[in-house]
Amino acid sequence: MELVLIYAFLVAGLGYSIAKDRKKTKQALFIARRILVKMLPSLLIIIGLVGLMLGFIPPETIEHYLGADAGFSGTMLAAGVGAITFIPNIISIPLAASLLRSGAAVMTIATFITTLTMVGTVTAPIEIKELGVRYTLLRNIFSFIFALLIGLVMGVILI
C-alpha cells in the first residue's frame, strides 16, 4: 500500500515535469542514475550485512541487547552508535527495520534513526567551519536529548 502511494507520487511528479520541460526531466533522470550508481555499493553492502546479521545472530540476542528488556541501556547504546556514525538515511532505514523485526524496541530504533540523522559527529568539523563551535555544540547536544525524547514518546505510543 505504501508503494502505491510512493509510485503515485512519482507518476505525478514525472507527469508534471514532462509536461513542463522535457529537457529538465531528462536531466532529472540522469541525476537519478548518478545517485543510483553512487549508492549502489553501499546499498548492496547493507543488504548483505542485514542478511548476515539476521542469519547468524539469533533474534533473542538482538532482543536481549536492543529489546524492551534491555531498557534504557539499549536505547542509549543505539543513540550513541547513531550519534557517532554517518550512514545515509536511505541505507540506515532498512537496517533499522531489520533490527525492529528481530525484536529491537521501537524506542531504541526511533532514537537510533533520529540521532543518526540529527546528530552529526562525523560532519561536525564542517558544521563548525560554517556555523561556529558554539552553535554546532548546542545544536548537536539538544538534538541528542530530543532524539531520546522522540524515542521515548514513540516507544510509549507504538508498542
Binding site: Y7, A28, I47, L52, G55, I90
Partner: peptide
C-alpha cells in the same frame, strides 16, 4: 542469510527507483 538478503534486495528494488527519480 541468502533468503533474508534476497528479500531485502527485492524490497529495495521496488522502493529505490521511484525515490531516486524523485530526488532527481
Amino acid at each position: 542469510v541468502y533468503d533474508v538478503s534476497l528479500s531485502y534486495l527485492q524490497e529495495m528494488a521496488l522502493i529505490i527507483p521511484p525515490v531516486f527519480i524523485l530526488m532527481g
